[in-house]
Structure formats: C-alpha cells, structure tokens
Design a protein around this nucleic acid. Structure first.
Length: 611
DNA sequence: TTACAGACTTGGGTAAAATTAT
DNA sequence: ATAATTTTACCCAAGTCTGTAA
C-alpha cells in the first residue's frame, strides 16, 4: 500500500511480468535473425524506469535537473529556381526573397477552398504587402491579378518527385530524421533520459484557424533564435544558438515543465516545447487527474443533490450556477470561458451559451420539457442535442430567457471563474472539466460491464470495448469528418465478406459430401476427411464472423472519433483491468504510443481495479 | 471585479509510415 | 515488387484554469 494522491490510498499489487507479445512477432523475429542491426531494429531498451514507484516532490518544483539541446529551427527559405515564375496582370514578375516566400505559402494552399474566402484573402494580402519592397507594393495592387499557378505546379511536382525517390534516397532521409530525433528529441530530466514531445519550432506559413476564424490567412512569422526562451538547469550544458545568433533569454525555472518557449504572432500567445506523454512529468499529472475524478465519484451524489436543491434558490445567480452545473454534469459540456470578440471563431461552452443556442419545447412528440441545444463548441464542432429535462430546470431556463435578445448570454450572472470557485468549495481540486473526466470514465466502466459477455470470442470482446468507448465519445461529442475513402473501404470489406460467405457455403457442401461418403464407406480415410472439412468450415465461420464484426465496428464509427476520449478522458486502468480480466491482448486496445503513455496503468492495474 | 499573461490539456486533420492486397 | 489501404505520428490550434496586478 503506497502512493497517495490527494489523500487517496492506492494499492499496488505484485507486478506479474507477462510475456510481451509484439504486434507482429514473426516479422520482428526474422529481423533479429537477418543481420538486423542495419535499419529497423530498435535496441531492446534497458530496464524501463518506473517513475510511478518514486516519491513525488511536494514543494511545487517540477524538476531538479534539466538538460537539452534546444529546439530544431525551421529550415531557412530556399528561393525558387528561375524558371518558376510569378505573374502579375499576365506578366512575369520577379519577387524579392521576402515577398516570394510569403507568396509560396499562398501558392501551396491554392487547392484549398479557403484561399477563395474573402477574409483569408484579405488577411493574406495585407500581411503579404508588409513583406514587399516599395516597388513591389506600388506595382502589386490587386490580389485577383496575381497568378501563383506556376509556383503551385512546381510544388506539386516536387512532392510527386519526393514520392518517386529511390529507396536509397528515402532511406537517407529517414536516417537523417532519425539522427535529428536522437540529438534533439530527448532531454535529461532528473537522471532520466526523456522523450520530448515537439522539438521542432513551427515553421512560418499562413495561419488557418478552425471554423470561421477572423484571422485566417494571416502570416505566421518565422521564429528566430532571438525570439526563443530556453529553460534548463543552471548546472546543465546549455543549448547553443546557431552561429552568430543568440537566444532571447536562458532561464532556470524549475516551477514549470517546458524546455523552450516563444510568442506566436497571430494571437500573441506563448507556445512551448514540452515532454512526451510517456514522460514522468506528464504521466504523474495524468494519473493525478484520474485520482481527482475518482474523488468526485465519492461525492457526486452529494453534489447532485446540492445543485438540484439550488434550482429552487431565491438568488438568480445560484439558480444559474446550478442549471449550468447540471448541463456540465449531464451533457458533459465544457466550462465555456469567455473569449475576446473578433479574435477567434465564435464558439461557446456551457457558461458562454447564448439565448440563440437553445430552444425550449414544453411538449415535443411524447416528451415534456425538452431543451434543444445547437451551438458550435471547441474547434467549431457542432453540438446538437435534444434533451428532456426536469420541470424545474425548464422553468428556470424560461426565467433566464425572459427579456433577452438572441445574442444575450443565457447565464448572465455566471462565468467559469464563479463556477469553479464554487466547485472548489465543494471538493478540493474540483473544476468543471473534472466532470467530463469523471463521466467519461464511469461511463466506460459501466458500459464495459454491461456489454462484455464472458463467452464471446476475442474479436467480439473488442467490438464491445469499442462500443463502450464509442458511448463515451458520443457523450463528449467527439466527432470526425467521415474519412474521404469511407464508402470505398466499406465496400471493400463487404466484398471480402461476400467472398468469405461463398467459401463457407462451398466448404459446407464439401463437409456434407464427406459425411455421406463416410456413412457409405465407414472407412478411416473418409472419417479423417470429415474432420478436415469440419475444421475448415469452423475456421471459415470464425473468419466470417470477425469480418462482420469489423464491418459493424467501422460503420458505427463513421463520424465518431475515439482517440481523444481514449487518450484524455478514460482512466487507462479501467481498460487495463478489463483486458486482464478477459485475457484480451493489450495491443488490441492500445497501440505502441498509447502503451507508452499508459505504462503506469498497465503496470499498476489488476483485473479487479475499480474506477 | 476584471483583465491579462502564462502554463498546461485537449482536439481534429493530415502527411508519412506501416501493412496488406495484387 | 508495387500499389492500395490502414494506422500512426505529427502538427498546431483551441480550449481550461491559475495567478497576479490594477
């Protein structure tokens, strides 16, 4: 019994090393045999460090020692070859390097619909002009007279050429990337080599926000060493800026986790280089997040009773708070911070919902008191839902809507800071987003319990798991655009199923034939034949079943993205426990990256783990 | 109370890599 | 071996939440 997070006692059970299966045991084996040292084989890592078995700092420091090589800067601009021309008003025109670079950004996007959008063009043109020489500025006065097609064709040809490169050339590039990864992709933090998440500085380009973004098309400028702040230990070997340049600053702040930061010019926000999710510093935080959610589990009944009670409060602000919290709890809405108007796309969360985002129906079909939600949430993903609510909630909503315009705030006496302050008083460490984590994880656990049947095959169990995962993704509104090749890929699968069905029916006929044969002859040979055919039928049945399950899974997943919930909302110990309970290979649930991120949970959770 | 900087988590899309089909 | 398809890694935007200062 050790390790307490937030006063929660955790039990760790004896670690039973299981035989580790690789996704493709055969391939790996053969690689090891066949003079593998050449390319693909990674060295078997020395005993993995189990950070989760170590003490954690209690003084707010994030590390004691930090050494790294700094960021990889964006490659400098390479001017276009002379034969690739830009045309203005039908005539070729040689651009200065600075103007040409920005023009190439636009040229590379020519095939995208957004280069036809007014805002995009306006923003681009405005920022492009800033890079022009005064002659260029006076000559180029109309974007519609600019012709970038030759540039665009050139880049298409380049990427085509890249695809056509010989094996050797491709290998060379891969090796170079690997070298850069080895040099810049790792750091040393407190005696351990850790993988860095994003060690490359973002290259310059045109900003493309998501949804209807007012800043789309603006120039994202090149980041120079002079813009970059380095964070590392005083007593470490400091990263060196490129010859002839200097960093903006080198600091030694161990109260933060980032290694490198710079300020981005579109929103003026700070960007960071941080560690990979498999690192101690990310893993501990992740673990802690789920422990907070588990503490919520213990008191959620009390909190629910409380907010239901608050629906009756004399004070408007308390009623609003209580209804908002109900939405956050029941519908897994995000908190909804207010945003500066005109700086970003117009999206909302719970606290920033406006009157225009909900509709009230006293009666709808056979239901009473239905609320219809329709708004754009994070990343401009649409949230649409109809939910019957309790009469009291409905009456409150009618009250909140009184005398308001569509663009007015639904919860005019509430914001995220008020809400979170309240939550903090109810439970230490409680904020709005904990509800999302809690409801996601508890839903997975409960759905797994409900959907898994002991006698099913492994593929059927995996379908059940994915369905449980899907229930969570739907709850959290994690949507994706259906893949461009979705229909085709479904068709392919169907063809396979049909084929398999044919094979099966012929196999069945053969079995029947073999049986009659055997009845007639009663010979040993014919008996064997019956067995052989029976086996074949069985195998085909199984294969057919698996294909059908794959098809079901894929179809159901058409517009649902499972990744985000799996990575950010579901306590991995629930999945690990499930896998151990039903003897499902963990690789079926988590890929390599995911197994690395959740190493702590895989090591820690046994089959009886309860969220 | 608000505004804002800062730090960190969460998010969907896409290019590249890996795998499978031909 | 090559092409088609699927999966993964990477990209970087967009949220949440905290702390501080006015």
């Amino acid at each position: 019994m050790l390790k307490t997070y937030d006063g929660c006692i955790l039990f760790r059970f004896e670690y039973k090393p299981k035989k580790i299966k690789t996704e493709n045991g055969k391939k790996l084996d053969s690689l090891f045999k066949a003079g593998a040292e050449s390319k693909k084989v990674k060295k078997e890592p020395e005993e993995k460090w189990k950070w989760w078995e170590e003490e954690r700092a209690t003084d707010g420091s994030k590390w004691r020692f930090l050494e790294h090589k700094g960021p990889v800067l964006a490659p400098p601009y390479e001017p276009l070859p002379g034969h690739v021309r830009f045309f203005y008003d039908g005539k070729p025109m040689k651009l200065s390097a600075a103007a040409e670079e920005v023009a190439t950004f636009f040229a590379k996007m020519l095939d995208h619909e957004y280069t036809t959008k007014d805002i995009f063009r306006k923003n681009f043109y405005k920022d492009w002009r800033k890079e022009m020489t005064s002659e260029e500025k006076s000559k180029i006065t109309d974007l519609t007279k600019c012709n970038f097609t030759e540039m665009s064709e050139y880049f298409k040809a380049q990427s085509e050429a890249r695809k056509q490169m010989s094996k050797e050339e491709k290998l060379k590039i891969r090796e170079e990337n690997e070298r850069i990864l080895q040099e810049y992709g790792f750091c040393v933090m407190d005696n351990h080599k850790e993988r860095i998440g994003n060690f490359r500085i973002e290259p310059p380009g045109l900003f493309r926000g998501r949804g209807d973004h007012p800043k789309m098309g603006m120039l994202k400028r090149r980041i120079r060493p002079e813009d970059i702040i380095i964070n590392c230990s005083k007593d470490s070997k400091h990263p060196k800026p490129p010859q002839g340049t200097r960093w903006k600053e080198v600091r030694h702040d161990n109260k933060v986790t980032w290694l490198v930061s710079w300020t981005e010019n579109i929103q003026g926000s700070i960007k960071y280089i941080m560690l990979n999710p498999s690192s101690r510093i990310k893993g501990e935080k992740d673990w802690q997040k789920y422990e907070t959610a588990r503490r919520l589990k213990k008191c959620v009944d009390r909190l629910r009773a409380q907010y239901r009670d608050d629906w009756k409060s004399k004070e408007m602000r308390i009623r609003q708070r209580a209804v908002a919290l109900y939405f956050i709890d029941k519908l897994a809405l995000r908190a909804g911070n207010e945003k500066e108007e005109g700086e970003t796309a117009d999206t909302v969360g719970c606290c920033s919902l406006r009157v225009e985002h909900i509709k009230l129906y006293p009666k709808m079909d056979d239901q009473e008191y239905v609320v219809e939600f329709d708004f754009l949430g994070k990343d401009s993903i649409r949230y649409y839902n109809k939910m019957p609510v309790e009469k009291r909630v409905f009456k409150n909503l009618q009250l909140f809507l009184e005398n308001k315009q569509p663009e007015d705030d639904l919860f005019d006496r509430l914001n995220t800071s008020i809400l979170n302050k309240h939550l903090q008083e109810l439970m230490d460490g409680l904020t709005a987003k904990v509800f999302r984590t809690y409801n996601a994880s508890i839903t997975l656990q409960q759905q797994l319990k409900e959907l898994t049947s002991p006698e099913e095959s492994i593929p059927a169990k995996i379908l059940s798991y994915n369905r449980a995962n899907r229930a969570v993704a739907i709850l959290c509104n994690h949507q994706r655009a259906p893949p461009k090749t979705f229909e085709k890929s479904m068709q392919n699968l169907q063809t396979k199923i049909d084929e398999k069905q044919k094979q099966l029916s012929t196999a069945r006929k053969q079995l029947k034939g073999a049986k009659t044969e055997h009845k007639a002859s009663h010979g040993d040979g014919s008996k064997k034949m019956v067995e052989v055919k029976r086996k074949a039928v069985q195998r085909l049945e199984e294969q057919l079943m698996n294909l059908q399950m794959q098809a079901t899974d894929r179809e159901e997943n058409k517009q649902i993205a499972l990744g985000t919930s799996k990575l950010n909302y579901l306590d991995p110990r629930i999945s690990v426990a499930w896998v151990k309970k039903w003897d499902v290979p963990i690789e079926k649930i988590y890929n390599k990256t995911q197994r690395e991120k959740f190493a702590w949970a895989i090591d820690m959770a046994e089959e009886d783990y309860e969220f």
